[in-house]
């Protein structure tokens, strides 16, 4: 079945089962591999994308539910890898293996768009759904504060 998805401002015609998780449509059909598969049950956040401004786990979001909505993936955060969150991540050398970081960044971007100057508690709450086995949490927390600071100037 042909479905139109709007990803990073571009329409993609996708021929797939409407029940297919959005993650696999993004990766296999739209060819955007920055969004990762981690658990398949919305527990780890590696697949996080932003749909109409909200961070969602694409691994258990059916394709059909994203039709007509604005989907943003890591590839749509900036053209030149210079969104304040990306710059802060680079400055504080947040990523180690890096596999979870697309999801971490999408959760952080969604958080900062809603709360431009989040407290530690807000950060903990917004980021609790994203697992990082390299344990980069202290740097992620610091980088979100740094990105908030950079966005002000």
């Amino acid at each position: 079945m042909a479905i139109t998805l709007n990803i990073n401002g571009q329409d993609h015609m996708i021929d797939a089962d409407p029940q297919m998780p959005l993650l696999w449509a993004i990766r296999e059909k739209a060819g955007l591999s920055g969004t990762k598969f981690g658990c398949g049950i919305a527990q780890c956040g590696a697949c996080t994308v932003i749909v109409d401004g909200n961070a969602v786990r694409s691994c258990n979001t059916p394709l059909a539910s994203a039709v007509g909505k604005a989907i943003r993936t890591i590839e749509g955060v900036s053209v030149n890898n210079d969104h304040p969150v990306q710059l802060a991540w680079q400055e504080l050398t947040v990523p180690q293996c890096g596999y979870c970081q697309s999801g971490q960044i999408m959760s952080a971007v969604a958080l900062l768009e809603k709360s431009p100057n989040p407290s530690d508690n807000e950060i903990d709450k917004a980021m609790a759904g994203n697992i990082c086995r390299c344990g980069t949490y202290p740097r992620i927390r610091a980088a979100i504060h740094r990105a908030a600071e950079m966005s002000k100037t």
Binding site: S33, G34, E75, S78, N81, Q90, V94, P95, G98, Y99
Partner: peptide, 21 residues
């Protein structure tokens, strides 16, 4: 020294086996 691959891991361009087509 900052690790050389950090920036490839902030925009989804780092390639893992799962990304190979």
């Amino acid at each position: 020294v900052k690790r050389l691959d950090v920036s490839s891991k902030t925009n989804g361009t780092a390639v893992y086996p799962i990304d190979v087509t």
